[in-house]
């Protein structure tokens, strides 16, 4: 893994919060999160349902407005009020792949339209050019060009997810947010889609934000992983470092709970249970601290000291 300092930051999230509702019924779905995503890497965001991981993805791509903080993409602030021109650029350069390929494709549109819909919002292109790009995008994801005239229901789950990937690729993005892209797929199909994503990354130097709850898949494809719990990032580290030295008790609980497809290990594993009441943040306030190079953790002074001891041991 290259040194972090020398790597180009593609996207930077600083103290970002996202709230829903207002007044007394306000709910903070994402609470002051900060992280950087480097160009060309696969950055994983893991958490339980309701932890705010999807909201972070949606806030970056400007579907949910941020309440405070900054999202900086290629050196420019892209959240809040931005110029129309920048908005258009962001729409093109950041694309999203959704979880359920059964639900995320317009059933009444042909593949041709689904894949090229994004092109209609950009600069005008000729019909021939559009057709050519659709064909190219379909080929890149391993589908035949003649599929363009078919409807989504004619495809299997894996093929539909490929259509979802083609729709993102046609915009020639730099950054793709993949929100649980393989959770709805069968084991054997998962492998195909994962391989496709990493192939495309190699060919085009794409950067991924991979949002998932499945740590065993993330271990396989992510360079770095951030763990989120109830809207707060609790730990961030390079993948293998996180698996080798998890510090935050929530990370530890999450790692210990992953089912291992290995009966001897699985039946003998020790489950750690996370009790959020163990943190006493009444006086000693927690913060987001780099405890060792590239390894961030959320905790107060007392906890951080304990984590430092854990790292030394």
């Amino acid at each position: 893994m290259p040194e972090n300092e020398n790597r180009e930051v593609l996207l930077s999230v600083r103290d970002m919060s996202v709230c829903f509702g207002k007044g007394k019924r306000i709910f903070k779905a994402v609470n002051n999160v900060s992280f950087d995503i480097f160009k060309g890497e696969t950055f994983g965001l893991v958490g339980e349902s309701g932890s705010g991981k999807t909201t972070i993805g949606r806030a970056i791509i400007r579907i949910n407005p941020t309440t405070s903080g900054d999202v900086i993409f290629k050196g420019q602030k892209i959240n809040g009020k931005i110029s129309k021109e920048l908005d258009r650029r962001v729409t093109r350069e950041i694309q999203m792949i959704f979880q359920d390929p059964m639900a995320s494709l317009n059933e009444r549109a042909k593949v041709d339209y689904i894949v090229s819909e994004g092109l209609y919002s950009g600069e005008r292109i000729s019909e021939e050019e559009r057709k050519r790009r659709v064909e190219k995008a379909l080929q890149e994801v391993g589908l035949l060009p003649e599929f363009a005239s078919r409807f989504p229901h004619e495809f299997s789950g894996g093929q539909r997810q490929r259509i979802g990937v083609a729709r993102a690729l046609i915009m020639q993005p730099d950054f793709i947010i993949a929100d649980e892209p393989i959770s709805a797929l069968d084991v054997s199909i998962r492998a195909q889609v994962l391989n496709l994503l990493s192939e495309l990354q190699k060919e085009r130097g794409l950067t991924y934000l991979f949002i998932s709850h499945d740590l065993s898949v993330m271990r396989f494809i992510c360079d770095r992983i951030a763990v989120i719990h109830k809207g707060v990032l609790v730990e961030l580290a390079e993948t293998e470092k996180l698996f080798a030295h998890p510090l935050h008790p929530y990370t530890r609980a999450l790692l210990s709970a992953i089912p291992l497809p290995d009966p001897v290990r699985e039946k003998n594993k020790v489950l750690e249970v996370y009790d959020p009441t163990q943190h006493d943040y009444s006086v000693d306030k927690p913060s987001w601290v780099e405890i060792e190079e590239g390894h961030m953790v959320w905790g107060n002074e007392k906890e951080l000291n304990r984590y430092r001891d854990m790292l030394k041991a």
Binding site: S188, A191, N195
Partner: peptide
Amino acid sequence: WALLSSLPQLGVKGEPLYSIHGT
């Protein structure tokens, strides 16, 4: 064999994961 081979836990990072062809 194919089912077990396509487990990400058994994959080698950076290399394609085993996948079952066809449907």
